[in-house]
């Protein structure tokens, strides 16, 4: 293994809605496929163990971090690091849309989705509790952070992770395709490409976007999973809505080189930002009504 390189894989897959066992078996097959392809870090889509439009299935399909299902899931990460996604029930019976970073059979990090879309075709806050933090974590390949789907539609999420010094942002997603025009691709595909590439380039980090395929109640998941380099270039992508293992070799030194060429992070005025945000917040909350 070259410590300067990381072989990543994105499991652009379909899920069975509300059938945890079927999805666990899917994960086993994808892990095996990725292992054979020499993948060291494999990312699954949002809610990969459950399916997305769960509605009242949320409490029925949730797992606990201490429960027996967790053991099976951890067992998937013996040979390679994984990001898998599930509904996590906390001891106080709040349910979270969560992504787990697994390494060597252990849970290395847990991110609870902060921004739960509850508009248009989405209804997450009806069923789920929002996370309350963005934290980076150490991996064998550098510092990473996880943002789940809607989290990336809030600039501050990626900005916070960036200030923690992440080399890599991982985004599991279950994005339904919509917006049909005469364009080559769906509106959602265009938007995500723009957002993910912008983050990678502005924050000079690698960006892994893993989206689902398949249909739930007529909604199509458009795939488009991509690996983006710290200069904003897409280095691998499955543009179609087909199941695919998207792989790429990341040259980890690229983060350093990009930050020397383009020292945006060095020049970032964190204290100024904090002061200005505090001022804005004070002005907003000082209003009499």
């Amino acid at each position: 293994m070259n410590p300067q390189q990381l072989q990543v894989g994105l499991a652009q897959m379909d899920c069975t809605l509300g059938d945890r066992q079927a999805n666990l078996e899917r994960h086993q097959r994808w892990v095996e496929k990725a292992r054979q392809a020499g993948v060291q870090l494999l990312v699954f889509p949002e809610l990969s163990l459950t399916g997305y439009f769960l509605k009242d299935l949320v409490p029925e399909i949730a797992i606990t971090l201490e429960g027996p299902q967790m053991k099976e899931i951890l067992g998937l990460s013996k040979d390679l690091d994984l990001v898998v996604s599930a509904v996590i029930e906390e001891p106080d019976h709040r349910y979270f849309n969560a992504s787990l970073y697994l390494s060597n059979g252990e849970l290395a990090h847990l991110h609870r989705k902060v921004y739960l879309p509850t508009y248009g075709m989405f209804d997450e806050q009806r069923y789920l509790a929002p996370g309350d933090r963005f934290r980076s974590f150490k991996t064998p390949f550098g510092r990473a952070g996880i943002l789940i789907c809607e989290d990336i539609w809030h600039l501050s999420s990626a900005y916070i992770l960036s200030l923690e010094g992440v080399d890599l942002i991982i985004c599991p997603s279950a994005s339904p395709g919509r917006g049909v025009t005469t364009d080559e691709r769906l509106g959602t595909a265009e938007s995500y490409n723009l957002v993910c590439r912008t983050y990678a380039q502005f924050l000079t980090t690698f960006f892994l976007y893993c989206n689902r395929v398949g249909y739930e109640d007529g909604a199509n998941f458009w795939g488009g999973s991509m690996v983006i380099a710290p200069n904003g270039d897409i280095v691998a992508q499955e543009e179609d809505a087909d199941e695919a293992l998207v792989t790429a070799t990341l040259e980890l030194g690229e983060v350093r080189r990009q930050r020397l060429a383009n020292p945006l992070l060095r020049d970032e005025r964190v204290e100024l930002t904090i002061n200005e945000l505090r001022r804005v917040w004070h002005e907003r909350t000082r209003k009499p009504y």
Partner: peptide, 10 residues
């Protein structure tokens, strides 16, 4: 307030 997806289990 009994809301399940149509594709429940599929």
């Amino acid at each position: 307030d009994f809301r399940y997806p149509r594709d429940w289990g599929h």
